[in-house]
């Protein structure tokens, strides 16, 4: 096997190692340390934030190599070397590779844990924007359904 093919194989193996390292970092999000923040002390109180975390990622790699007879050379008149007869097909090699990937990471605060003289309190974090979005989405869907029902009942 030629040097080019070996080089492509080595690059593919190295890329695969890097991708697996990235996936391992992604999976590390499953630990509690990704959800709970560092405690913050202020006077007699210690505050810890709690969040919901979602992470996803995917990668793809591809490579190929070729070793074999090359295509016949061009006719003499089509080359700059006019008058020289075409050479028989020679052994050659080639190859290529590519890859890509993507991912997403989201975080949303869920609660705040307060440790103080009165004890431990867990206070939920309420997001009115998300509630309003859910409400209007449901309302819009119900209106659409109602409109279709009216159309169907008339038809």
């Amino acid at each position: 096997m030629g040097e080019a093919s070996e080089g492509i194989k080595m690059m593919a193996a190295k890329s695969q190692e890097q991708v697996m390292a990235l996936v391992d970092k992604l999976i590390a999000t499953a630990r509690p340390s990704a959800v709970y923040g560092e405690p913050v002390k202020s006077g007699n109180y210690t505050v810890i934030t709690a969040s919901e975390v979602t992470a996803a990622g995917g990668f793809g790699l591809g490579s190929g190599s070729y070793t074999g007879p090359m295509s016949p050379p061009l006719e003499a008149k089509e080359t700059k070397n006019e008058g020289r007869p075409p050479q028989p097909g020679q052994e050659g090699e080639g190859g290529g590779g590519g890859g890509g990937g993507g991912g997403a990471f989201t975080g949303r605060p869920v609660a705040v844990i307060t440790i103080g003289p009165a004890g431990v309190e867990v206070q939920p974090v309420v997001d009115p924007t998300k509630m309003a979005l859910a409400f209007f989405t449901a309302l819009g869907a119900m209106f659409m359904m109602w409109g279709r029902m009216r159309k169907a009942s008339r038809g």
Partner: peptide
């Protein structure tokens, strides 16, 4: 002691994690 629950889905060259307190 904080407690969290996680769902981890792993496939070749990728994965998905959902982690919540």
């Amino acid at each position: 002691t904080p407690q969290s629950q996680s769902l981890t889905v792993r496939w070749p060259f990728g994965g998905f994690v959902w982690n919540r307190p």
